[in-house]
Write a protein that binds this DNA or RNA. Sequence first.
DNA 1: CGTTAATTTGAGACCATTCAATTTCGGTGG
DNA 2: CCACCGAAATTGAATGGTCTCAAATTAACG
Lengths: 279, 279
Amino acid sequence: MELELPKYQNSSRQRAERTRSCAGIPVDGRSVLEDLFKRWRCAAPISTIAKSALIGLPWTQATFGREAYVVREGEPTSSFTVLVSGFAIRQKLASDGRRQIVSLHFPGEFVDVQNCFLDHADCNIQALNSITVASVSKSMLLKLMAAHPSARRSIWLDSMVQTLTLGEWIGSLQRNDAAGRIAYLLCEFVARLRAAGMTDGTGCHFPMSQDQIADATGLTGVHTNRTLQALRKSGLIRLSSNRLEVLDWDALCEVGGFDEACLHRRNTAELKPAPLSHE
Amino acid sequence: MELELPKYQNSSRQRAERTRSCAGIPVDGRSVLEDLFKRWRCAAPISTIAKSALIGLPWTQATFGREAYVVREGEPTSSFTVLVSGFAIRQKLASDGRRQIVSLHFPGEFVDVQNCFLDHADCNIQALNSITVASVSKSMLLKLMAAHPSARRSIWLDSMVQTLTLGEWIGSLQRNDAAGRIAYLLCEFVARLRAAGMTDGTGCHFPMSQDQIADATGLTGVHTNRTLQALRKSGLIRLSSNRLEVLDWDALCEVGGFDEACLHRRNTAELKPAPLSHE
DNA sequence: CGTTAATTTGAGACCATTCAATTTCGGTGG
DNA sequence: CCACCGAAATTGAATGGTCTCAAATTAACG
């Protein structure tokens, strides 16, 4: 067993120091928390009372640079974090310092729901690019959830969908080779982006470096590079300078074993909210 | 792309037909649902009112043979299923028919919590050995959860722990080679069994075949065999005829990158239930 | 005791890693 | 505008890990 410095304790992470600027309770009449509803309204209806209660929650805003840590493993979990703009990942650092990316996070998502019953965060949340987040007090949100069934349901639903997504990811790692894993990752990214209405024309902004793709797929950076070239050569994608264009969506899904219907189903039609209670 | 029959549509699955024997509302004064509390009381206190409400729920009992399907993907989800005795897995069948095992389930667990907001099950639940389950009506349990915050919290907590476990599993698949993946699987199995107080002396009953281990780790059956032999030769485990003995726990954890503290933390100390509400 | 499933073994091909070294790219300062 | 720098992307060759295919052995079960 050899000891070495964690991979990400030097170089690029240094320039990404945590820059937190608190904003306090909003006075301009529009809460960033409204972004939550964009994702929720399609899945489960939320009552107007719960909605206004949510919007009325005090929050603080913060911005983080590329590769900065939004939440650190082991940190006390005193607040919930909503990703307002930009992309984030959930990751853990293995004992040898290698980074393991467990899931992706898009604007409008609670990035740390899983921690809501833990005193200390069980993994790191890291910014992919320059991001903005809003934090709300954990105890206040829990109280709100206790009082408002429809809000509770939406948040619970959100975390359940995350769980299902993790299950799919496991399947991808088990069944796919390098090309399949990368294809799956790209498919999931594009599909979730599309579901959030954030694609632009023929493609989208893709904020992951090849090393980050490698960390998410469990591959080497080198082999990720070669596999990406193969995907490009076979005409499935175009990817350069953080811009991704999927040239053959069906083929990409085929390679990655990505079931678009599965994801779609969860975000819309079949996710009918069971009546937890009448509000 | 070649087409072939799904791997598990012939041979061994045939003899494991679904045998369901309904028992109706219990009259003997003891509900199998009480098994739930063994797992819950250590994590989150549950009120006596909620407890008696849960015990009072009508349920039906069913037994399934080895490899039988308890829940099938796509099936309407009209009930929740509690595993009473035996072991089960959550799995999906890939398009080529290969089975992908996503998670393990132990007695006292809700095996289909993730489906509670879905109209149709999104994966299969399969028995590992001969098992007994209890089913309760989905709508009745949801109503109960709406009325009893402490019950709701326990169930939610359960599903959150499942999510965290999936995350760890992803990490294992990303970072580990064959030996590491198998070591991790064995560690998780033993650790969860131990947490449930189900180990016996030096080892435990281990119900998975080598092919099932392969399906859970994303390896080939053949290579799983060779890797198990390597683990045996290095003196870490003893495994034969469904009996597992871990000879060197620390070394096994080391190989699999299994963080025992992590799992333990979730089951006991740090899982203090945040006050969702006062009941 | 016979049948079927499960485990084991071998050899060759293929996939992914390692360890360099090299090139491209975006940003920075002269 | 150019020179420079570090980070990211790319390339090559050798090594090691895993898969495939097929056959043999052992174990489980009626």
